[in-house]
């Protein structure tokens, strides 16, 4: 081994070069695949439509003079069918009898959403 011929090592070097190039290519491809995946998953996982629907349901509940049965329905069915823990309160604001302060909490295990809105 004292007199090792190192002439052939450029072939290995070229092989490494190609390998590194391939890795970069894979990196880019994975990134672009991730763009589509994360967008679709982001949309699917963030329950934008559910939260909007819940808000409008709470506003309907206020319009229907805050029936306590309706509130229990929303909480129970959310938990059972939507796997979401929902709680909300609606109180008349002291300065306006027609304005309600709505405190809304939503948690489906992935997304937590809290909002205080005047309606």
């Amino acid at each position: 081994m004292a007199c090792m011929n190192e002439d052939g090592q450029w072939i290995v070097l070229m092989g490494l070069l190609v390998a590194v190039a391939l890795f970069f290519l894979a990196l880019i491809i994975n990134q672009s695949a991730l763009v589509g995946q994360t967008t679709a998953e982001g949309v699917l996982e963030f329950p934008k439509n559910d939260i909007r629907d819940l808000r409008s349901a709470v506003f309907d509940y206020i319009d229907a003079s805050c029936d306590s049965g309706v509130k229990e329905d929303i909480v129970a069915i959310s938990l059972e069918r939507k796997n979401a823990v929902v709680s909300f309160t609606a109180d008349v604001t002291p300065w306006d009898n027609n304005l309600y302060m709505v405190d809304l909490h939503y948690n489906n295990g992935v997304t937590v959403y809290n909002e205080t809105v005047y309606y």
């Binding site: 491809i29 672009s32 695949a33 589509g36 995946q37």
Partner: peptide
């Protein structure tokens, strides 16, 4: 590898 990527049009959908 690239052809599979192009046909899916992932970015376009986003």
């Amino acid at each position: 590898l690239l052809a599979g990527l192009q046909s899916s049009g992932i970015d376009y959908d986003a």
